[in-house]
């Protein structure tokens, strides 16, 4: 299932500078078809900035982002149209729209009905609208929100708001989904449910790039994990590689004072999870 053909997403040497501050420094990453890739790192490591570079919210100072072998334009809506959807770290739903309307907004790029079609309401309009609604309801069904379709998004409990954000992102028929801390603030049961949701999304053939702090979540899900520290990617690989990497341990726990004993298998990088 790994990268045999050309990768879905190919990031080469992305650097983002804000004045004198280099938030992301020469990061390269590839995401293959049907892969789940994790992106971890301490707070302020530049993970979200990196996401913003991918989705056109920021224009990277250097480097290129190619999706399906096409360079992505630096405009968020064009990136979404190309097939990359995202969620936000701090939930950004359309709070005063209903759950269904939120998902319908996600359909925007995949529908064409313009203003005249809306005024004239011909058969084509009704067909497209019905299709959108069916698709949106299907996604709500998929995320388990179907019975709340007519609620205002702001009235949903926290966990369901996260799910709704994912449903809204899926509505644009993406090939790659970027999840920014999908389990932040969730309890263990909700995190388990989120894991299953992510697997279910992958089974639909959608690749996923996920930022997370919850190590168990990351290592359960991801085929590969990249570690970002101070804007630089220090290591990328499977669970073993990442967990045993000295620099990762240093980044999370600080440098040992003396000749430190080798990290105890499996537990050390998971430390941030305990602080949550």
């Amino acid at each position: 299932m790994t990268t045999t053909a050309a990768p879905l997403l190919e990031v080469t040497g992305v650097t983002m500078r804000f004045g004198g501050l280099t938030a992301v420094n020469d990061v390269s990453l590839t995401v293959g078809e049907g892969e789940i890739i994790g992106l971890i790192g301490p707070n302020g490591a530049g993970k979200t900035t990196f996401f913003n570079c991918l989705t056109g919210l920021y224009v990277p100072t250097e480097g290129t982002v190619r999706y399906r072998d096409v360079q992505l334009p630096p405009k968020p809506h064009l990136v979404t149209q190309a097939g990359i959807a995202r969620t936000f770290q701090n939930i950004r739903l359309f709070a005063n729209m209903t759950v269904l309307e939120n998902v319908l907004v996600g359909r925007h790029t995949r529908t064409k009905e313009g203003i005249f079609s809306a005024i004239l309401r011909g058969p084509g309009y009704h067909r497209a609208e019905a299709e959108s609604r069916a698709k949106a309801m299907e996604l709500l069904e998929f995320t388990g929100l179907a019975d709340k379709a007519e609620h205002l998004a702001r009235n949903l409990p926290y966990g369901e708001q996260r799910k709704l954000e994912i449903a809204r992102a899926l509505a644009s028929d993406p090939g790659l989904l970027l999840l920014d801390e999908p389990t932040a603030g969730m309890n263990p049961q909700e995190t388990r449910a989120a894991e299953e949701l992510v697997f279910a999304i992958r089974d639909k053939g959608i690749s996923i790039l996920v930022i997370e702090h919850d190590m168990r979540f990351i290592f359960n899900l991801c085929d590969r994990t990249a570690v970002l520290v101070q804007g630089q990617k220090i290591v990328e690989g499977d669970r073993e590689t990442v967990q045993n990497d000295e620099r990762v341990i240093t980044a999370y726990l600080g440098a040992p004072l003396e000749e430190a004993a080798p990290a105890a298998e499996g537990t050390t990088p998971a430390a941030p999870e305990d602080t949550k």
């Binding site: 968020p76 950004r92 739903l93 359309f94 319908l104 790029t109 203003i115 309009y125």
Partner: peptide
């Protein structure tokens, strides 16, 4: 009434609610 309750109208309300999120959903703000 017709435009407000259509794809275009929803996109307007989305922009009003959160322009950044709306653009991330593929709306040309």
């Amino acid at each position: 009434a017709r435009v407000g309750n259509s794809r275009i109208g929803r996109a307007w309300v989305a922009i009003r609610e959160d322009e950044t999120a709306a653009e991330a959903m593929g709306i040309n703000g």
